[in-house]
């Protein structure tokens, strides 16, 4: 292994649970592992104390990610990771709380929790692994499945419209919103790092490959072909601003998309309580 690669994997190894059995539950080549690596390198760069990090997830292939990590980990019920994380964060405002979620977990069954976590602007970083499909249950349609795409529950093509998770988060009040892909890993690592350091609700949507279902059903090829397509279809925000809607068709914008410095929920709670009870 090249030295740079070895250094990279050594960093990751520092944060994997010594007692957890590998291999992981994921299909070989699944993007979830790439997200895990980028997340751990971002944490390592920031030098967080492992004892002060809680990683919470719901249900899905993506939500299995925390299991392998040597932090406080809470693998909860389908869609509910954000309210569980809200309980942890509000009880221990000093703790770094991260939610790992999927497009179905966050936006279908957990959609209501998602918009309200954004609205509260509670200091949680959500990493939403968007593979456009339900992986764990075998390839059914999700709220991000594109129109006309095939899934096992849209066998003739999807008649529904899809959510843009970033637009949804911005509209609902999140104060840091970014999009990355599993091709652009250094950027993903940087964006996750910025999200972690941001005080308020932060969302990093990561476009990822489920070649086993989405790729196969939609004839998008193996992981390499799918990830290459992410490279081809991603447009940096600065460039996108100069493009027409027509030119942007079928593309997606990556990078930091939105940032504001509105007050964070736990801070604000303390502030209003102190102001009232002190007088």
């Amino acid at each position: 292994m090249a030295t740079a690669e070895k250094q990279k994997s050594d960093v990751v190894l520092k944060y994997l649970r010594p007692k957890k059995k590998f291999p992981s539950v994921w299909c070989p080549g699944c993007g979830n592992g790439i997200v895990m690596g980028a997340f751990l390198r971002a944490i390592d760069k920031l030098g967080y104390d492992k004892d002060n990090v809680a990683v919470v997830s719901g249900i899905g292939c993506s939500s299995r990610l925390p299991i392998y990590l040597d932090f406080h980990t809470l693998h909860t019920t389908h869609g509910r990771a954000l309210p569980f994380a809200t309980g942890v964060k509000f009880a221990r405002p000093g703790m770094k709380v991260i939610v790992i979620t999927g497009d179905g977990d966050a936006l279908a069954i957990g959609g209501n929790h998602f918009i309200h976590a954004c609205r509260r602007n509670i200091d949680i970083t959500a990493i939403l692994i968007n593979n456009y499909i339900y992986g764990m249950t075998g390839g059914q349609g999700s709220p991000t499945t594109p129109s006309a795409a095939i899934s096992t529950t849209t066998p003739y093509g999807n008649a529904e419209k899809h959510f843009d998770p970033c637009d949804l988060a911005i509209g609902a009040g999140a104060s840091f919103v970014a999009r990355a892909t599993v091709y652009h890993t250094p950027q993903m690592e940087r964006l996750i790092g910025e999200a972690l350091e941001h005080r308020g609700f932060s969302l990093v949507e990561v476009i990822s490959n489920c070649h086993t279902y989405f790729g196969r059903l939609n004839r998008q090829g193996d992981p390499v072909a799918m990830i290459k397509a992410f490279k081809d279809n991603a447009v940096a925000k600065a460039r996108a601003e100069k493009m027409t809607a027509e030119e942007l068709k079928g593309k997606f914008v990556i990078g930091g998309l939105y940032r504001s410095d509105k007050t964070e929920f736990c801070d604000e709670y303390q502030k209003v309580v102190d102001a009232h009870l002190v007088k």
Binding site: V56, R80, P83, T86, F90, H116
Partner: peptide
């Protein structure tokens, strides 16, 4: 700490999260 959640699914979840946090 008191928090009004968006529904009872979330309320129960937050209660458990806080209990796990001590």
């Amino acid at each position: 700490r008191f928090i009004q959640m968006e529904d009872e699914l979330a309320s129960m979840a937050a209660v458990i999260g806080a209990s796990v946090a001590g």
